[in-house]
Amino acid sequence: MNNTTEETSAATQYLSFILAAQEYALGILQVKEIIEYDTVTPVPGAPVWVRGVFNLRGNVVPVVDLTVKLNLPPATLTRRSCIVVVEVRLEGEEIVLGLLADAIGQVIELAPEDVAPPPSFGTPVHADYLVGMGRVATGRHFVLLLDINKVLSTQEIALATAEPLPEASAHGPPEGET
């Protein structure tokens, strides 16, 4: 088969979203769905960058506040706030996480020549967390392409997805507490 030219020149789709007034994007294949920010239950003892958990069709899904994790100005919840549900890899297993976003941008298509390597300076996030910088169709601005598998280490993913203790369930405090 001689598909190497087609495969290397194929464009990749990304979902862009806003964090602290900056546009970021993730590969569309990692994104499972986008949901309106609703009830997120705080989990005592969770890392500071875990906003809490929510129920996604019977599954407990942790919500990661990327602004906290990336040391950006904290997110302020608005009617445009949403959760981007993604899959990340943890020791060969697919784990579902929610990422809090200030707003959703758009689906953008980038050819390989539209993706520049991550710069070593001048971005609000560490260059190791980036796949690169995508030049949007207008060519006038760039979107920071996040590598979610590097933003969260294996240990951090394990911390975020640990089963909450029974008293931290969404059903309220244990009996006898108010």
Rank of each mutant, 00 (worst) to 15 (best):
V31Q: 07
P173H: 08
S120F: 13
A103N: 05
K32M: 10
A20P: 01
E113H: 15
G45D: 01
E6H: 07
L146V: 06
M1E: 14
I83A: 03
A10V: 11
F54R: 03
V64M: 03
S9W: 00
A103G: 04
T41W: 11
L70Y: 02
D65L: 07
A168M: 01
L26F: 04
T178R: 13
D102L: 03
T138F: 05
E94H: 10
T41Y: 13
L97Y: 02
P73A: 00
L130P: 06
K32Y: 09
L70T: 10
L145D: 04
L97A: 08
V136K: 13
Q106N: 12
T78L: 02
H141L: 13
T123P: 09
R79E: 08
A162P: 04
I18C: 07
V64S: 00
P47L: 11
A25C: 10
G172A: 06
L26I: 15
E23N: 09
Y14G: 03
L146S: 11
A101H: 05
W49Q: 04
E94W: 09
T67Y: 03
P119G: 08
G45K: 01
L77M: 09
T178V: 10
A20R: 05
C82A: 14
K32P: 00
D114G: 03
Q22W: 06
V48T: 01
Q13Y: 06
V96M: 12
Q30P: 01
N71R: 12
E177F: 15
E175Q: 12
P117F: 02
Y24A: 00
L152V: 07
V31T: 09
G27V: 12
G92T: 06
R57V: 04
L72T: 00
F54C: 00
L26N: 02
Q30N: 12
R80L: 11
E177K: 05
E156K: 04
D128A: 08
